[in-house]
Structures are given as structure tokens and as C-alpha cells.
Simulated assay, not measured.
Amino acid sequence: MEIRLDDPAASHVSELLAHHLRELRSVMGEHAFALDASGLSSPGVTFWTAWREGELAGFGALKQLGARRGEVKSMRAAPSARGTGVGHALLGHIVAEARARGYEALYLETGTADLHAPAIALYRRSGFISCGPFADYEASEHNQFMVLTL
């Protein structure tokens, strides 16, 4: 698997990103905080794609929350790549980058619906624990918050 720094507005990302946003919004409604291409292109957000045998396998991003904190954003495996380790590879890459930047903590917000269960299991296996809302988030029955101390 190859992980590349990429442009979230690139044409090769658009279909998977649109699928990601549609799926989350269909389950979470107004509580879906996933970023679109413009949000993922914002200053302070770094975006990567994962490739397997020349095919887009997924994407993920790291948002800077301050000098010592970051947030995992928009982790997504392509439907054809689910269960193949792409999420694990992307999360490992993001955690390594956060450590290299000197972050002390890495946060994330995710959903509570059944479709989030594999991601939640991945985050827990990677050492993330539950925490309260951070940044500008507000708690609801549709989301949950996690942190990894680095």
C-alpha cells in the first residue's frame, strides 16, 4: 500500500469523497461533521490518499488544532478496500505524522451508528479512548469523541 500526500479536490478523489459525505449525512443528518473538498483543503489540514495496485483504496486527513494537538479527519476506506487494512495503514500514517509534529494529543469525532463500528474498533485497538467534546463540537446521540495521548 502506498500513502500519498494529495489534493482532496482532485478528480480521482471526488467519487469516494461524495460517497463518504452522502453515507454519513444519510445516517447522521446535521450531526455529520465530515469535511468536503474545500474543508479538507483548508490551511491547517493535511490530506492523504492510500493506493493499492494503482487503485484508490482510501483517504484520511490530519487537522491542526493548536501547537500541540491534532484531529483525525475524514478517514474512509473505499467500499472495495474495506477489511483490507487500509484504515489501519492510514491511521498509522496520521499518528506518525502527529508525533513527528510534536503533538501531545490526537483527537477524533466519529458517529455512533452501526456503520461506524469497524472504525471505532480500529481506533480502540490503536489506543484511542473516549473523551468529551473538543474544539467546537457539541455532544449528541449521533457522535462520540476519542483521544490518543502521544
Score class of each variant (00 low, 15 high):
residue 103 Y to M: 15
residue 40 L to Q: 05
residue 85 G to W: 11
residue 82 R to F: 00
residue 55 E to Q: 15
residue 44 G to T: 00
residue 111 G to H: 08
residue 71 E to M: 09
residue 54 G to K: 03
residue 85 G to V: 12
residue 55 E to K: 15
residue 44 G to W: 06
residue 104 E to H: 08
residue 74 S to C: 15
residue 40 L to P: 06
residue 62 L to W: 01
residue 88 H to M: 06
residue 85 G to C: 10
residue 84 T to G: 10
residue 44 G to I: 04
residue 42 S to I: 03
residue 113 A to N: 12
residue 54 G to H: 01
residue 38 S to N: 08
residue 73 K to T: 10
residue 115 L to N: 13
residue 52 R to C: 14
residue 59 F to D: 03
residue 42 S to T: 11
residue 111 G to R: 08
residue 66 G to F: 02
residue 78 A to H: 12
residue 85 G to F: 11
residue 93 H to W: 11
residue 92 G to R: 14
residue 61 A to Q: 09
residue 50 A to F: 12
residue 95 V to Y: 07
residue 87 G to A: 09
residue 113 A to S: 13
residue 75 M to E: 06
residue 83 G to Q: 09
residue 37 A to H: 02
residue 100 A to W: 10
residue 55 E to M: 15
residue 115 L to W: 13
residue 73 K to S: 08
residue 91 L to T: 07
residue 59 F to K: 02
residue 47 F to I: 04
residue 110 T to W: 00
residue 73 K to V: 09
residue 106 L to G: 01
residue 104 E to V: 02
residue 97 E to S: 13
residue 55 E to R: 15
residue 79 P to D: 08
residue 87 G to P: 06
residue 62 L to M: 02
residue 65 L to E: 01
residue 101 R to Y: 11
residue 69 R to P: 00
residue 103 Y to P: 02
residue 109 E to N: 01
residue 53 E to L: 10
residue 85 G to H: 11
residue 57 A to Q: 00
residue 78 A to N: 04
residue 99 R to F: 01
residue 52 R to E: 15
residue 94 I to D: 08
residue 114 D to P: 08
residue 114 D to L: 11
residue 44 G to D: 01
residue 46 T to L: 12
residue 78 A to L: 06
residue 50 A to R: 11
residue 36 D to G: 15
residue 53 E to H: 11
residue 95 V to L: 12
residue 115 L to V: 14
residue 54 G to N: 05
residue 68 R to L: 14
residue 72 V to M: 07
residue 64 Q to V: 11
residue 61 A to E: 10
residue 106 L to N: 00
residue 81 A to Y: 00
residue 83 G to V: 08
residue 102 G to Q: 13
residue 33 F to A: 14
residue 41 S to H: 10
residue 88 H to L: 11
residue 111 G to D: 10
residue 46 T to M: 09
residue 85 G to L: 10
residue 91 L to W: 04
residue 101 R to P: 06
residue 47 F to R: 01
residue 47 F to C: 04
residue 39 G to M: 06
residue 67 A to P: 13
residue 94 I to W: 10
residue 80 S to G: 09
residue 101 R to Q: 15
residue 36 D to W: 12
residue 66 G to S: 10
residue 33 F to K: 10
residue 109 E to Y: 01
residue 75 M to I: 15
residue 50 A to H: 13
residue 87 G to K: 06
residue 47 F to E: 02
residue 63 K to T: 11
residue 93 H to A: 01
residue 84 T to F: 09
residue 101 R to D: 05
residue 38 S to L: 05
